[in-house]
Nucleic acid binder design. Structure first.
Lengths: 341, 341
DNA sequence: ATGAAAGCGCTAACAG
DNA sequence: CTGTTAGCGCTTTCAT
């Protein structure tokens, strides 16, 4: 079914049919109605490719996330999708799987498909890769920090370093000194910042850092388990552990329990993200609340701003969202159950 | 950058350039090389729309799931994506949000975009909706049962009824009689089957059903919490609860704990799905292991079979996958920690 | 082995 | 207000 058949059946030219689809106001009411009827009758829908060939626009955005099975990324994805769906856009969700080649491949596909914009979540891409995208006129927005240094690419993020500092500070305030950190290998830069925040809190208190208290691990439950076990096997087991994500904490807590270590009585925990599950495990996890859904929403809005205005005045925008420390049970704090900034 | 410029620069006709891209063997080695060089130099990539206009093929499949935040659906999605990515296909992930209008809208978009096939996960669509898709020549595969009765649409699923029967049977074997069920409002049909399995197990034992032990709830953690609370408020609280999904169990267990009820000492639990988190909560959840990733993989393979063979001999295929009962702590079983069929 | 040209389905400028 | 027609970028006969 194509426009020609519709035109023939309605006794008009293809141009007129095209008009009722794209500029309905410029067509006489009765001809318009007649054509509309035929369209309905023939169940005609314009060919997607032909349209694209003319408009060079897809009403689609690409969304690249590091791991589709990680709930915190999915919450961001949900935020993006909410906005894009509401704008009648489609979202092409790509699962980078923490592998730069896979990310590159996906970006390639997205570019080839002429998506109208791309949202990159904590990606591994280098600045060159990103430049390649924008050079083709496709706007990019970052959610969470990227590996490469990016100049002039809008980004929405939180203050990882500050948030981590406060989290560790809280642990110190309670009275712990032997504090370890488990940080994910990805996303690289953000986790580096989290380590920095951790260090800063320790340094401020004159606590000397122990090499073996810095544990890197894949950012998965399993990764957390292994790192937790390593920490437990240490001659001098830490009294408290800060993790760069909740799922790492889940794994590490599980490891402790498996080895008969009591949480938080023997080892206290503070996580990062506040995913939905974090107050369901035992003990409920004290964690940094990262506004993931909101980050997705804000990121998508930013992207659409650029798309809609063709990126006129939006240069080098950086949006910093707030995160709070959510104090629950796992940190072993006696009284202050609640939230602080 | 388009094919014309490449042709000009290489001193050949556009036809020849097109040939090296689509039928390289039909071009003289040296001309081919020359053209390849120019392509590289000019960073030429064929226009996706123009290609589509000719081939009417997108190398894209659509995947519609009920809820992007539900880990069990994401595991299925991962399975589908794994296969499709490996086949160099793209996956358009759509979040139906348990709303039939949103599902319809998405399917509409997918059809308009001429995706090469669609995977529907436990969708709300009626058989008419699905017929509308297949009528347009787009193959459809179902993962998990649909709302409508579908004839001749390939499906991969598990035996919900049998699995639930065994789960409840296990509860009975341990010695419980007052057994309740919390079942999600979606996916409708599968949960109906789970209720059937539950009923059958009770009936077999001559246990009379109590109306108030059948609790329907939204298939979310929150839904589980509310249903759990309702069950706890009952004059005669059940001694054991079977839930149609793990996340419902998570919510209900949380509710019990909040009200000072001990799990499994006072109320035992058996879930359904065996998502990764289910052995991290306290107590570790006894649950029906549903092979979600595998369902995704098998479903996608099935779809590609149809796409590749143009659906010649694949009629009315139904693939039934096995699920096991995974016995952990939450059911309160003393000895048999492990797996049974 | 290569080129010329038709055509995929649609949009928009130009004429009337 | 509507029709004619020239593209959009590519693939593929049909010649040569």
């Amino acid at each position: 079914m194509n426009i020609k058949e519709v035109a023939k059946k309605a006794g008009v030219s293809v141009a007129t049919v095209s008009r009722v689809l794209n500029h309905p106001e410029s067509v006489a009411p009765d001809t318009k109605q007649r054509i509309l009827d035929v369209i309905q009758e023939l169940e005609y829908t314009p060919n997607w490719f032909a349209r694209g060939l003319n408009f060079n626009k897809t009403d689609t955005i690409g969304l690249l996330i590091p791991n589709i099975l990680n709930p915190s990324y999915m919450e961001i994805a949900k935020g993006v999708e909410d906005v894009s769906h509401q704008k009648n856009y489609n979202t092409l969700l790509c699962n980078g799987e923490n592998a730069i080649e896979k990310e590159r491949k996906y970006v390639d596909i997205l570019v080839k498909r002429r998506v109208d914009g791309i949202v990159l979540v904590s990606s591994l891409l280098e600045s060159d890769d990103i430049e390649n995208i924008t050079k083709q006129g496709i706007p990019v927005v970052l959610i969470g920090e990227n590996r490469g240094d990016i100049k002039g690419i809008p980004i929405v993020r939180i203050d990882c370093e500050g948030a981590s500092y406060k989290a560790v500070r809280h642990l110190i305030d309670i009275g712990y000194k032997d504090i370890a950190i488990i940080y994910g290998s990805t996303p690289e830069k953000e986790n580096k910042r989290k380590v920095d925040g951790y260090r800063q809190a320790l340094a401020e208190e004159g606590i000397t850092e122990r090499e073996e208290y810095l544990q890197e691990a894949p950012n998965t439950i399993e990764g957390g388990y292994i790192a937790g076990k390593r920490l437990n096997d240490l001659k001098h087991r830490p009294r408290a552990i800060f993790t760069s994500s909740d799922i790492l904490a889940f794994g590490a807590i599980d490891a402790m329990k498996d080895h008969g270590v009591k949480v938080p009585e023997e080892v206290a925990f503070v996580g990062f993200d506040n995913i939905r599950m974090s107050n369901l495990i035992e003990p409920k996890l004290t964690t940094v609340e990262k506004p993931m859904h909101k980050m997705g929403v804000v990121g998508a809005r930013l992207l659409f701003d650029i798309i809609d205005t063709k990126g006129e005045d939006i240069t080098n925008r950086e949006i910093l969202l707030q995160s709070k420390l959510k104090i629950r049970k796992s940190c072993g704090h006696k009284e202050r159950i609640g939230e602080i900034f």
